[in-house]
Design a protein around this nucleic acid. Structure first.
Ligand SMILES: [Zn+2]
Ligand SMILES: [Zn+2]
Ligand SMILES: [Zn+2]
Ligand SMILES: [Zn+2]
Lengths: 137, 137
DNA sequence: GGTGGTTTTGACAATGGTTGTCAGTCTTGA
DNA sequence: TCAAGACTGACAACCATTGTCAAAACCACC
């Protein structure tokens, strides 16, 4: 029923994509396309805004970055350590992120959907709060 | 530490707000401001787009409607039956929504946040799938 | 049933993130 | 080296959402 998982179609290696990749590797927190673009421009390795968007889109499609929406509705991206499905505990003030696994929640979500006859199930789950460092200030 | 819960500041009852309210009462699924506006226009009871946005904003602030973001990032609104905190099981294709309570998940989210020293915690959790009716088609 | 002050409305402009366009450039495999 | 096609970037277009502000509606209170 579900489309077979594609083996991550190969993409060409370009200077622009490497630059975006580098930033993602160096950045702990979720970052928006606009921020990433500004960062690249600032560090000299300019990359077109459209290219930044396209690159992030591709990475997200391939599951190589996680995406979620900030309070303002802006899409923000992050290269996570964990490869497997997981969720995030994010600081509302500084963006500090902790990757979270919750097997019990996964099972619960699945069973809830089953109970109501919903198929092809996915879910979103994020936890927001104030991290210790920000709370101290 | 937390701001005291305000007693839902009183707002004036106007034709426009009543119209928006009516649509929300009659609508089972999550609906966007644009859709709501088009619906009102179609049914003759025209209401300015800005007013629709303002009204939904106010309702959301007062906790009288639930808001979440569609895949496209558009905000969608729904008047839920349950007054207390809850989550949703939403059909990706037709929007059919089931309200879900998950006490265990609530506790889990809180404990995860505690473990990492995060305070002032909130969370978002939605389950998406294909409802039985849509699966049949 | 008039009056002044406050709230609400709506047409329109402005904002801002995101996507579309398309001619020129770069990669890649042969 | 070369051609096919992927990639880029400046720019325009899109579109949900918010800001503006004068006119309209509303609400005591006289
Ligand atoms: Zn992640
Ligand atoms: Zn999960
Ligand atoms: Zn709800
Ligand atoms: Zn919850």
């Amino acid at each position: 029923m579900t489309v077979r998982e594609q083996p991550a179609k190969e993409h060409r290696r370009t200077r622009q994509r490497a630059a975006v990749d580098d930033v993602l590797d160096e950045t702990e927190d979720f970052i928006s396309a606009q921020e990433l673009h500004a960062l690249l421009r600032a560090r000299g390795a300019g990359v077109g805004l459209a290219t930044v968007y396209r690159t992030l889109q591709t990475l997200a499609d391939d599951g190589r970055v996680d995406v979620l929406r900030s309070d303002a509705g802006e899409a923000v991206y992050r290269r996570c350590v964990r490869e497997e499905h997981h969720h995030h505990l994010v600081c509302r003030s500084c963006g500090a992120t902790v990757e979270i696994a919750g097997p019990a929640v996964e099972r619960w979500a699945k069973s809830v959907a089953d109970q109501h006859g919903y198929s092809d199930v996915s879910h979103t789950l994020e936890i927001f709060g104030t991290c210790p460092r920000c709370a101290a200030a």
